Simulated assay, not measured.
Amino acid sequence: MKILVTGTAGFIGSHVAMRLLARGDEVVGVDNLNDYYDVTLKQARLDRFRNDPRYTHVHADIADRGAMESLFAEHRPRRVVHLAAQAGVRYAAENPHVYVSSNVTGFLHVLEGCRMHAVEHLVFASTSSVYGANRAMPFSEHRSAEHPLTLYAATKKANEQMAHSYAHLYGTPCTGLRFFTVYGPWGRPDMALFLFTRAILRGEPIKVFNHGCHQRSFTYVDDIVEGVIRCLDRPPSADVDWNAMSPDPSSSGVAPFRLFNIGNEQPVELLAYIERIEECLGRKAVMELLPLQAGDVPDTAADVSDLRDATGYVPQVSVEEGVARFVRWYREYHAV
């Protein structure tokens, strides 16, 4: 089938596009290749599949209404995987307008395209950051996520609510996926694994916030892609119950809409994560221990039981193996 993937020059988007092409789908990719980080890396990701005859690339900004209307009208995708967004949690403090333009206005254009062209399923990226001030562990889709601590998280929470309204008003099936700390080959240079690996190889100190004592549900990118594909192939349906006094946050029942956590259920302490990087590099890190950053949460832990029950999703790659794969890729890509 023909599937639109937004953000195909991005970390997760490029992996999703490759997986869809490998199984025989036709992929229309859209990306504006902005310079938030190294454009050469984005081009290199695209080069892995750009010449596949079943791939069509559209260079456009999802915040450009006219461009998105033309894209949907010309290509008429059957399903959509929306992964494009302004990346980086902390960057939002310096550039809030960019986040709202891409993450809110851009998402509206995707929703409108799906509505106008009867797309049979929209799968979109949310984030574990929406849990914000919620400290009940592990994070569950059935609990409140009404207090985000960053603008990035607030824009993603807005996406969830916008998608639900479109699912209810227009019957567009929507599935939101709350990603938990994705890592792996072709990752973003502003993420911890990339930053730590580069600094350790150069003999430079690494900044370790919260003294390395917080935990994260580090999830290997192939496991994320597997969950995305499984969800894409299972559009949700509405199970209307107007007598429900308090709709469940993950599925109101009045719309073909679902929210799922997607991540590894075994959190890893940051210091242990760094130790694994040191082992793979054969070098010790010089650590600058710092307090918790503003907007960060001390810990994350994913409850993925709903996704497992709905799709059979079970992450396969351990942190030990995943970090080793990243280090091998990093050394090869950078010739170090």
Rank of each mutant, 00 (worst) to 15 (best):
L4W: 00
V5D: 02
G13N: 04
A17I: 02
A22M: 12
E26N: 13
V27L: 04
L33Q: 02
Y55E: 01
H59T: 13
I62K: 01
R65I: 13
G66S: 09
S70Q: 15
P96L: 06
P96V: 11
S101M: 09
S102M: 09
M116Y: 10
L122H: 00
F124T: 00
A125T: 04
S128A: 13
A136Y: 11
A136S: 14
M137F: 12
M137S: 06
P138Q: 08
P138R: 03
E146V: 07
H147F: 08
P148G: 07
P148Y: 01
L151S: 10
Y152N: 03
A153S: 05
T155D: 08
H168S: 11
P173W: 03
F180S: 00
F180E: 00
V182F: 07
V182D: 06
P189F: 09
F196T: 03
K207Q: 15
C213N: 15
R216Q: 10
D248W: 12
S250Y: 12
N264K: 05
R276D: 07
L281F: 12
M287F: 11
L292D: 12
P298H: 12
P298N: 12
D299Q: 08
D303L: 05
V304S: 10
S305R: 09
R308E: 15
P315C: 10
P315N: 13
V317S: 06
A324Q: 15
F326I: 09
R331V: 09
A335D: 15
